[in-house]
């Protein structure tokens, strides 16, 4: 009487319960999204009328070196940060899953970067990278590794590695926690059986833990990939996209187009390309991961 097992097309009682959610979602999420996608096919500039211009924005993009540069940086950043955060997060999760004296303390400490507002992550690292008062320059000069302080965030060579470190630091705990949750659903018997069969730590990891984690890892990798590609606040605080656009991720480029230069249509077009690029990357990744199931 309450639960209907098969899908019915519509139920007025359900609609009544869902209305408070549906209205704000449609007005403030679905509609703006559709509108935003449409704006990507117009020449809309702030303050002037909106005119449909088909694929002009995308044709212009082909010749826009700033656009190519920001996508290049975006993919570089996304691949490296996602890769490192998963590898390091996996290691941390495995460590936390084994009983050790420090595990309780660790679970509090790994919350630090995760809980922190992304803006504050940026500010803290900016203070540590500072040329005059930053801790890294102090220590490296102290140890005699460098003679001159390095202007980490403002140098063409160091800006990208510097923000990547911050990105990995901030995102790795999230990956570790989700992987850990996946690890904890494994039964102890599996490990005991493996030990009895004489498996060493590496074999245990390779043949028991990894296969079991496959779905969790696929989910964490996909989500991290999307999140990392759409990073904004962190890099905004650290470098504002500089020096000379070296760290200008696609979201920073789109933000500048829309809110600094007023090219809303073009900014939306960049957003559309980001969605397509991310979807294509994920499609190939997930297809590769779940090949057996798709066949």
């Amino acid at each position: 009487m309450i639960q209907k097992k098969s899908y019915s097309s519509f139920d007025i009682n359900q609609l009544k319960l869902l209305i408070p959610v549906l209205i704000p979602v449609i007005v403030l999420s679905v509609f703006p999204l559709i509108r935003g996608i449409y704006l990507g096919f117009t020449d809309y500039r702030l303050g002037s009328p909106i005119q449909f211009n088909g694929f002009d924005n995308y044709v212009n993009m082909l010749n826009d070196i700033y656009f190519w540069k920001s996508f290049q940086v975006g993919f570089l950043w996304t691949f490296i940060v996602t890769f490192l955060q998963i590898i390091l997060g996996l290691g941390l999760a495995v460590l936390l899953n084994s009983k050790m004296r420090l595990t309780k303390l660790s679970r509090v400490i790994i919350l630090i970067p995760w809980a922190m507002p992304p803006i504050i992550r940026g500010i803290m690292w900016k203070l540590m990278y500072d040329v005059d008062s930053g801790v890294f320059n102090y220590l490296l000069i102290d140890m005699g590794i460098i003679n001159q302080p390095i202007n980490w965030l403002n140098s063409f060579e160091w800006a990208i590695p510097s923000i990547i470190v911050v990105g990995v630091w901030g995102e790795m705990p999230k990956a570790a926690i989700f992987i850990l949750a996946g690890l904890q659903t494994m039964s102890k018997n599996l490990f005991e059986a493996a030990r009895l069969d004489g498996a060493n730590a590496w074999q245990e990891f390779r043949y028991i833990i990894l296969p079991h984690l496959k779905p969790v890892l696929a989910a964490v990798i996909s989500l991290s990939f999307i999140w990392n590609f759409n990073t904004f606040g962190l890099v905004w605080v650290l470098t504002q996209g500089g020096p000379g656009g070296t760290t200008r991720l696609p979201m920073l480029a789109a933000y500048e187009e829309a809110f600094r230069y007023g090219n809303v249509g073009y900014a939306a077009a960049i957003g559309n390309v980001v969605v397509i690029a991310v979807s294509v990357a994920l499609y190939f990744y997930l297809r590769h991961q779940f090949k057996q199931r798709l066949v």
Partner: peptide
């Protein structure tokens, strides 16, 4: 309840994760 509204909401939950805020 199991109706098409469920599918709509679920679809929105997934889609909302993929699209960048800038759009």
């Amino acid at each position: 309840y199991k109706t098409y509204l469920n599918k709509g909401i679920l679809g929105w939950i997934l889609v909302s994760q993929i699209f960048p805020v800038i759009l």
